[in-house]
Design a protein around this nucleic acid. Sequence first.
DNA 1: TTGAAAACTAACCACCCCTTCAGTTTCCGT
DNA 2: ACGGAAACTGAAGGGGTGGTTAGTTTTCAA
Lengths: 212, 212
Amino acid sequence: MRALGVLTWRIMSDTTATRGSYAKTADRRRDILDAAFEVFAESGYTNGSLRTVADRVGLSQAGILFHFKSKTGLLQAVLDLRDERSREYFATVTSPGIEALRGFLEVVRMNCEEPGMIELYAILAAEGTAEEHPAHEYFRGRYDWIGAQARQSFIVMREEGTLRPGVEPGHAARSMMAIVDGLQLQWLYGRTKFDLVADVRTHLQSLVTVAL
Amino acid sequence: MRALGVLTWRIMSDTTATRGSYAKTADRRRDILDAAFEVFAESGYTNGSLRTVADRVGLSQAGILFHFKSKTGLLQAVLDLRDERSREYFATVTSPGIEALRGFLEVVRMNCEEPGMIELYAILAAEGTAEEHPAHEYFRGRYDWIGAQARQSFIVMREEGTLRPGVEPGHAARSMMAIVDGLQLQWLYGRTKFDLVADVRTHLQSLVTVAL
DNA sequence: TTGAAAACTAACCACCCCTTCAGTTTCCGT
DNA sequence: ACGGAAACTGAAGGGGTGGTTAGTTTTCAA
């Protein structure tokens, strides 16, 4: 009887596995991710420490390593979470062309309302230029994806005749991303106050003939 | 006699001071600065270590702190040295206007030939967004200076009628700096090969009516 | 209510960091 | 050639890092 019970448990444990998380665990993980987002945005990945993340969320350092098995794992989770929104936003709205550009502008506007977003990407993108950096592949892929997406939009617009004459789609795509990154950096130094979204729109407007 | 001698020495030491450096010291310092330039360009300031600088130049870690009293002192020296060139270049060539823009393009071209330059500024500019960072003031001042300089040039050109109609000098200046910073970042990720100087020139050309 | 898994902590490890300092070697003016 | 300053080293101090582990508390299903 008992032996049979244990056997049943063994079998169940092999199939249904380990019992699952507690109710509040999901919230905890989210708290940790939010704190990590802040810390990485302020100090970057290498310089930001698990300890400060832990302090900020009211846990021990080992505690957060229970939820995310390593520091790089935590970074990955942060990036994945933040990617989710813009990616799903793009998935619904976008077909290549003027609408995609407007969507891009919209994403920029959204990021401006959560300044941590700008800090995080500015710092990590620079830090991630080193090939061994855990975020290197992420940003390489990101630039590839956005760049290709944008280029495709400009190509479509050229065929439609809405691309300003003489503008090369590849250059337009690169310059679009560059303007955003560069302006964000200036914005972080905060000396000169300016409307980031307006500046980006002005630049995009110089590339196309239809109103944005 | 002896007491008088000591007195004289005291007086001399007050005026002519300490004897001065050895012959090869200047070269040593230069070697250290070059190595530090490399290390900071690769890993940034916080992450780059004095030890790797020391190893690369064949000195002990304490040895390089004899020449530069602290790590931040070393960074300052690196920045000062690198600033020297472009600053003196600008001082000779520049009066605000189209010539200043051409000079700016020339500086970009120069930096492209020494890629470490691009790495260093991309990484440090992002790292330096934190207010307590030793390079923070440096970059704030740099953006201020270049931005004001550029804006002045665009204003002059507007009066000359060589600024493309509808272009606002402030936006033009910001976008000019942004394009460079942003493209440099893409260039560091190196996936897409492109001519950085050509892209910058194309952008500048979209702002003015005279050929660059 | 009980008992086992999940959640968490404290302590520790091994490593790297910048800086300081007491000595040692190298240079070089006299 | 000598003597003292400059140049440099090795070791140690004090601090912070990510990661591991043994043990404790909390949750929750049966």
